[in-house]
Design a protein around this nucleic acid. Sequence first.
DNA 1: GATGTATATTCAATTTTCTGAATAGCAACA
DNA 2: TGTTGCTATTCAGAAAATTGAATATACATC
Lengths: 189, 189
Amino acid sequence: MALRNAVMAALLEGEASGYDLAKRFDTATADFWTSTPQQLYRELERMEGEGLIRARVVEQERRPNKRVFSLTEEGRSALHAFTRRPAKPTAIRDEMLVKLQAVDAGDAEAVRTTIMERMERARAKLARYERIRDRLLEGRSEEEYLRETDHVGPYLTLMRGRYFEEENLRWGGEVLAILDARAARRTSR
Amino acid sequence: MALRNAVMAALLEGEASGYDLAKRFDTATADFWTSTPQQLYRELERMEGEGLIRARVVEQERRPNKRVFSLTEEGRSALHAFTRRPAKPTAIRDEMLVKLQAVDAGDAEAVRTTIMERMERARAKLARYERIRDRLLEGRSEEEYLRETDHVGPYLTLMRGRYFEEENLRWGGEVLAILDARAARRTSR
DNA sequence: GATGTATATTCAATTTTCTGAATAGCAACA
DNA sequence: TGTTGCTATTCAGAAAATTGAATATACATC
């Protein structure tokens, strides 16, 4: 029942199809909530049944038709109620960090590779976030934007995503240096 | 089946009871993997059945007896194999960020409170991480420690946790300032 | 003497999530 | 002309996670 809150929050930015949402909630792109398409479509069905969202079919010429969802008034008020309830603590699950925790008994080279891949992914995410930011700002400075818009939520969560990935890169660099120094010492013995 | 890898990585640092692990994997204390006691005890049973860990009963005088688990050779090699497999991307789920995403249609005051609570928690976690760090360093500098120890994994993941919480505080401060400025503008209109 | 907190574990039911498909149209590329 | 990739969605089954208990001992505090 937690996914629906994330879905409603996403729909605040405008109507979206299940496919649109699936892209937004993909681990490769999401900055604070992830989900699979299957889960989303099922939840969307339920939410429509409960009147939180409504669907309209958009006929497309060069693509399969799609169902586009938007928030109902009921959904809006459910979302408002959600913002008043206490939030659960952040749930993190990161296999990369489990691997790193076990690096001393594991395959150091493989762990190193995983960290480098993660850094590459962080760079890609940062580039993506930067594009989204540009689209939001529309040429304005951050200060101007925040003064003029009545829609700060997406900007603030995006900011969080940006900081997170920037920090991933910084941390990853330090970790690689430490692992390298260690590997060098080991082979020289 | 992912929890077991985190459990094995934790047991690398020495034997632990289900209760010990439950504390380490608690959302309030964990830095990269969370789990409930129920889940842990069930998984520990299975892992023991599969020979990845072994248990010994410790009789205690002033407390209930406990079963203390340690890695078997089989567990060690399973952990080694895990470090060679590709890691799944980080899974984050953060209701606070969902609330913030929806702040424009929600209760701004409640969202503000949530962020302040999260910052308080970040401070507590940082203090905890600092204590763990001191215990690892034993008075040495970071450089000395990393040169001398053959056990860098826990230090590097701890570093990640520290950076993450520091950044939470920094970001939270900025967000509060922005929300405050917005609230001030709104009431003055 | 009661209440709350910490240790230590277990059971059962439900809900959620993940895995692995399958379908179907159209576009782009070799 | 075949292959791959993107849009768009659905089904079924298995695995994992969450929720809501319950039990028992012992210490500390009011």
